[in-house]
């Protein structure tokens, strides 16, 4: 509904006021990361320094948390890529008994509040006598990462013409060749975008993790402890800034990837 008319002043003020409300707190994170103040959240910052970045880089507990977070996010994303793509292929390509149930099932972990997923997984782990480990965190994360990959892949499968696969096979490609040379190149950018979103989601997840983590701390768990009992304010400021950068950059990349992927080969037969 774009219009050439000029916006009324009141609307303009409300819209840009809202935008400022959305962006100002994030801008604040970047300013505080360089503040010289140690003991409080004093505004305006008394001075600016790069010192805390160095201090943060030397913290071993942070590095351990970061490595664990990256590991969990990588494994969960890999699991979600396999499971999400398989499910999407089945749902998009064929009709079978229970198809609707499966497409609902995939969405459930993200539709229900995280606390419900977390508490039920925790009670399942204790029921099955599974000790908490990196793998229990991964299982929790993969559960809600699947839907992200699935959504991206199913949309792409629907846009990719099935005739391409039939043509490849008619021309003598076997199943694996068809997958590697025809199917995979067609869904690659969708998988990349879905994988990035899943990675970002897992990297940031805290609610399910508090239930499935045991004694290990991922980066969000470290952050949560710092929020509940602040000990190292300047270090937390730097970590917060780093986390914004790490989560936002893949999102922007994913946006540019999917934006250009609207026209897919073979879609118009």
């Amino acid at each position: 509904m774009p219009s050439d008319a000029r916006a009324p002043l009141g609307l303009k003020l409300a819209a840009f006021g809202g935008l400022a409300f959305l962006l100002a707190p994030i801008a604040l994170i970047f300013l505080y990361a360089f503040s010289t103040e140690e003991k409080s959240f004093q505004w305006p910052p008394p001075g600016f320094t790069l010192k805390w970045i160095g201090v943060t880089l030397e913290r071993t507990d942070l590095w351990e948390a970061l490595v664990l977070s990256l590991k969990v996010a990588a494994i969960s994303t890999a699991l979600a890529l396999v499971l999400g793509t398989l499910t999407a292929a089945a749902v998009a390509r064929s009709r079978f008994f229970g198809r609707e149930t499966i497409s609902l099932l995939v969405i459930l972990p993200i539709a229900l509040p995280g606390i419900i997923t977390g508490i039920s997984l925790r009670s399942a782990f204790s029921l099955l006598d599974i000790p908490f480990s990196t793998w229990t965190i991964v299982l929790g994360h993969a559960t809600f990462c699947i839907v992200i990959v699935y959504n991206n892949a199913v949309a792409r499968f629907r846009r990719t013409s099935g005739a391409l696969i039939d043509a490849a096979m008619d021309l003598g490609a076997d199943g694996l060749q068809t997958f590697r040379l025809v199917v995979l190149p067609n869904i690659a950018t969708a998988l990349l975008a879905g994988g990035m979103l899943a990675f970002a989601l897992s990297f940031d997840e805290v609610i399910v993790t508090t239930f499935t983590a045991g004694n290990q701390a991922t980066l969000p768990i470290w952050m949560l402890e710092e929020l509940v009992r602040p000990r190292q304010r300047p270090v937390t400021n730097v970590v917060a800034m780093a986390v914004v950068l790490v989560t936002v950059l893949p999102i922007l990349a994913a946006y540019y990837l999917t934006r250009d992927g609207e026209h897919t080969a073979g879609a118009d037969r």
Binding site: I26, I29, F41, Q42, M223, L227, V243
Partner: peptide, 24 residues
């Protein structure tokens, strides 16, 4: 999109900065 996709905890933390007694 930026606030939507920024880390949930970082957003809460940002508001801790905003709302602090000595804050902005």
């Amino acid at each position: 999109m930026l606030p939507l996709w920024s880390s949930y905890l970082v957003k809460v933390y940002a508001w801790k900065l905003v709302l602090a007694r000595e804050g902005i």
